[in-house]
């Protein structure tokens, strides 16, 4: 039996709020993620774009490929621009809308962090989506704090690879006590659809971290985008889970765990991380030892996650 998509067929075939003609590279996972996100969020969505690939390929002036309003903004400001837009919509009395930031990893992990942290702390009623292709791809593959250890970029000097770990964005966001945090991947469109739908119904700050394969930057065949992203999850390199706030009951003195972790996709078999790293040119310089030590780290993090999910 094939796994069934739970995205309603009607939504699947009809509600395309993204139109073709976009100039994204062949096989880019970002427009695919956007397509699914917008199917879940619907037309009453405002998309805020900081500088990122998407801001460029969505359409240069005077064209737009999205059938929802878009606000472009400076690189580092997306979270707060969205906060302003959300405030304005509430002042206008517009109900049932969602303001979604669609930022790359640079605009989230690096330059966007301050405004993001501010918006998160204020628990602004926005949905911040980071489509993480793990480097500055738009400017030509420079390292970001989202670049995983072991990856080659143009700013990890010749013959070298990034030696530092990827920033743990999920933990950072959770440390802000936001309303909803999830990871998702277009390789699991159903899960992604559900998460966007869920996020839409939650008020306050929502953060969704999307893994987003970039064929030129990852040095992969465009046809393998989904396959490799699926591998990221099947190897636990990119676990798919969500964290909701537990409702705090007023009448108990008991201090309960604040977070409710749910792992949404369990790997079906034990795939070693090497098969993920070896599938991509950017990890070509990783030694077997590095892969081994990464395996240990990945295992440990997964174990922690499993424990948190209970």
């Amino acid at each position: 039996m094939q796994k069934k998509f739970e995205i309603p067929r009607q939504v699947l075939v009809e509600q395309d709020l993204m139109q073709p003609g976009i100039t994204s590279c062949q096989g880019c996972a970002a427009p695919l993620s956007m397509k699914i996100a917008l199917k879940a969020l619907g037309e009453r969505t405002v998309v805020v774009f900081p500088a990122c690939c998407f801001a460029v390929f969505v359409g240069g002036y005077p064209y737009s490929s999205l059938k929802v309003p878009i606000i472009h903004c400076p690189f580092e400001t997306s979270a707060v621009v969205a906060s302003g837009a959300a405030a304005a919509l509430s002042v206008r009395g517009e109900k049932d809308t969602v303001v979604m930031v669609w930022a790359g990893d640079g605009g989230t992990f690096d330059i966007g962090m301050q405004a993001l942290s501010g918006a998160a702390e204020r628990n602004e009623n926005i949905l911040f989506v980071c489509y993480d292709n793990e480097a500055y791809m738009n400017t030509g593959i420079q390292r970001s704090s989202a670049t995983p250890m072991g990856a080659w970029t143009t700013t990890t000097p010749e013959g070298c690879i990034k030696e530092e770990s990827k920033k743990d964005i999920e933990q950072i966001m959770l440390a802000h006590h936001i309303s909803y945090m999830a990871t998702a991947s277009a390789a699991y469109p159903d899960d992604m659809f559900k998460k966007f739908q869920k996020a839409r119904g939650i008020s306050g700050m929502k953060f969704i971290h999307l893994l987003s394969a970039c064929p030129p930057g990852w040095r992969i065949d465009p046809a393998h985008t989904i396959k490799i992203m699926r591998l990221a999850t099947q190897t636990n390199v990119f676990p798919i889970y969500e964290v909701c706030k537990r409702p705090v009951s007023a009448d108990t003195e008991q201090i309960t765990e604040e977070w409710q972790y749910t792992i949404n996709v369990f790997p079906e078999k034990n795939v070693p991380v090497g098969s993920y790293f070896k599938s991509q040119g950017r990890f070509g310089l990783m030694t077997d030892e590095m892969i081994q030590s990464t395996q240990k780290r990945v295992d440990r993090k997964w174990q922690e996650l499993v424990e948190k999910a209970g």
Binding site: I71, V80, A85, A88
Partner: peptide, 18 residues
């Protein structure tokens, strides 16, 4: 907001939204 930079940026969103 958490900075003047954001103070002005918030208004990008708000003013664009009319």
């Amino acid at each position: 907001v958490e900075s003047e930079h954001s103070a002005m940026a918030a208004l990008i969103g708000a003013a664009t939204a009319g």
